[in-house]
């Protein structure tokens, strides 16, 4: 019996899930509201056998003014994974930490704090993870424009003198080819006319 298929009725009976999306045989997504995510997670861990926290991801839906957090769990048999998703406001809303349940959550939450600026309540140390002395907008937020940042802080080496603009060059070559084809066609036509004359 498929673990995820049998989990669906149990989970939907017990909690008010917004959606249970069975994506593949080995992957399902449960979308809940933020206020019940801890309870759902406890149920998944203690009763349903999803004992491993694989990763935490965050997606920035800037046009809907929300972050979607995805906690991905693996079943103890390792035969299927489950994504537990809920949304938080983009600014000022914090999430409870998972470091009390899984030690690996410490570094994942640090990563998300650095990249998105999400605050995790009760996290022992939200120090920087990959960046050093970063005072700008957290880089993975959609409003952070990496190209503008690069143009502001770096200048690029100029190309070679004989470098050409690729678009202009392609246009020129196309025009050249067209003119050549036209000339050929005309020559052929004339030749054809000559042949006819003879």
């Amino acid at each position: 019996m498929n673990i995820l298929a049998s989990l669906q009725p149990q989970l939907c009976d017990k909690f008010e899930t917004q959606a249970f999306d069975l994506k593949r045989d080995d992957l399902a997504q449960v979308i809940v509201e933020k206020k019940i995510w801890r309870a759902v997670m406890d149920y998944l861990k203690e009763e349903a056998g999803f004992v491993t926290l694989l990763t935490i991801t965050c997606t920035d839906w800037i046009e809907e003014e929300r972050f979607e957090l995805n906690y991905i769990f693996a079943h103890e048999t390792k035969r299927c994974d489950l994504m537990l998703s809920f949304s938080i406001a983009r600014d000022g809303e914090s999430v409870q930490t998972l470091t009390d349940r899984w030690p690996q959550a410490e570094v994942m939450e640090r990563d998300l704090h650095e990249m998105f600026g999400i605050v995790f309540e009760g996290h022992p140390n939200l120090a920087s993870f990959a960046l050093e002395n970063w005072h700008h907008t957290p880089p993975l937020r959609r409003e952070f424009d990496t190209l503008a940042f690069v143009n502001e802080h770096f200048e690029f080496r100029k190309g070679r003198e004989e470098n050409v603009d690729v678009k202009a060059e392609a246009k020129r070559l196309r025009a050249l080819k067209k003119a050549k084809a036209q000339a050929e066609a005309e020559a052929k036509k004339e030749k054809g006319a000559d042949d006819a004359d003879e």
Binding site: L54, T55, T57, C58, T59, I72, V107
Partner: peptide, 28 residues
């Protein structure tokens, strides 16, 4: 090694997250 990917209906990927085994091995 796992990849999380989200599309948003455009030609660009909305979000891709890489979760390699080394993250947990190097920290936890």
């Amino acid at each position: 090694m796992g990849y999380y990917m989200a599309g948003d209906g455009s030609e660009k990927i909305r979000r891709m997250q890489v979760r390699g085994p080394s993250l947990i091995h190097a920290y936890a």
